[in-house]
């Protein structure tokens, strides 16, 4: 206990947010599990209770795994699920390929330039996400700027199909999540001791060799953090595949949304949500193990 705060303040500052989190963060997740075992039902609420009374007045367990069987048996859900993992993985790789050199350039820029450059990179993050995705519709659609320019230059004879493709989804993902990748990478690269690279070069390493043998290994924790920050929201993303991917690009976030808002099947949406949670536990746990191993090596 700190010497400067009293137990009473302690109790209030701990209890208030703790209680809030239990009610509004933990309990809702328990409810997802519960509803995923229920069945769709017309009425309010639109799902069946798990415990019901039978004719004799005895409590009866009415939970069912039917939703999970449906989700596992119908290829729509499985395809959407695998597709989400694939699209999220490719988007993460693209963001890393673009974000790493950018973070490196900022970290190696003259001291007075770093803050303004970082500010420029993070600035778009503060403008509306929806508007940023919308901006790409204007660029990518058949009569949009990219196609008009290509036609005008005579590079193509008819507009390319850019919007409503997976390509558009990749662009949207990288565009929206690049700051998440850049920030941890920059934090790591900025702290990197330049004398290590000088030492390597003095010992005869070429700049390329020094980069791969010194800079990259030291940046690994930043790479892991950045990849996780992009991959996790990308798996469950709804807005980008909905607006840029069109009907052809199937992702699990879209499936969940449609089950809920179009089919109004709450229990199936809950089962899909459980599936997404499962998809996220694995990469987060892997990253934590990797981080812990890295920390173990460092000490």
């Amino acid at each position: 206990m700190s010497a400067t705060t009293s137990p009473a303040i302690h109790r209030v500052t701990t209890g208030l947010p703790f209680l809030w989190l239990i009610v509004f963060a933990a309990l809702p997740l328990v409810l997802i599990v519960k509803i995923s075992l229920a069945q769709m039902h017309l009425g309010v609420p639109p799902y069946t209770p798990l415990l019901g009374l039978d004719d004799a007045g005895e409590n009866l367990w009415r939970g069912t795994l039917a939703n999970y069987r449906l989700v596992a048996g119908d290829s729509l859900y499985l395809d959407a699920y695998l597709n989400s993992l694939r699209i999220a993985a490719i988007s993460t790789a693209l963001a890393l390929m673009i974000g790493f050199p950018m973070a490196y350039a900022i970290a190696r820029a003259p001291l007075g330039w770093r803050t303004p450059l970082l500010f420029l990179v993070l600035l778009p993050f503060w403008t509306s996400f929806l508007i940023r995705v919308y901006a790409w519709i204007g660029l990518l659609r058949p009569t949009g700027l990219i196609n008009s320019t290509l036609l005008w230059l005579g590079l193509v004879t008819e507009p390319l199909k850019l919007l409503n493709t997976e390509f558009a989804v990749f662009i949207g993902m990288v565009f929206c999540y690049l700051p998440y990748m850049l920030l941890p990478l920059y934090a790591r690269l900025e702290k990197l001791d330049a004398s290590l690279i000088e030492a390597a070069m003095d010992l005869g390493a070429t700049p390329t060799l020094a980069f791969w043998r010194i800079t990259v290994p030291l940046a690994v924790p930043g790479v892991i953090a950045g990849c996780l920050l992009v991959f996790v929201p990308a798996v469950g993303e709804f807005v980008i595949p909905e607006l840029l991917g069109g009907a052809d690009v199937l992702m699990i976030g879209k499936v969940l949304w449609n089950e809920f808002f179009t089919n109004r099947d709450w229990p199936v949406s809950a089962a899909v949500a459980m599936l997404v949670l499962l998809a996220l536990v694995v990469p987060i746990a892997t990253a934590q193990v990797l981080m812990a191993r890295k920390a173990g090596e460092a000490s």
């Binding site: 239990i22 963060a25 809702p28 997802i32 949304w257 709450w266 809950a270 949670l277 987060i284």
Partner: peptide, 21 residues
């Protein structure tokens, strides 16, 4: 752990779970 959940949970799940609550 609870404090980190809203940060890592996809929005569709946060939204659905709070609605159920």
């Amino acid at each position: 752990g609870l404090l980190a959940t809203p940060l890592v949970l996809p929005e569709v799940i946060t939204g659905l779970s709070l609605l159920l609550l």
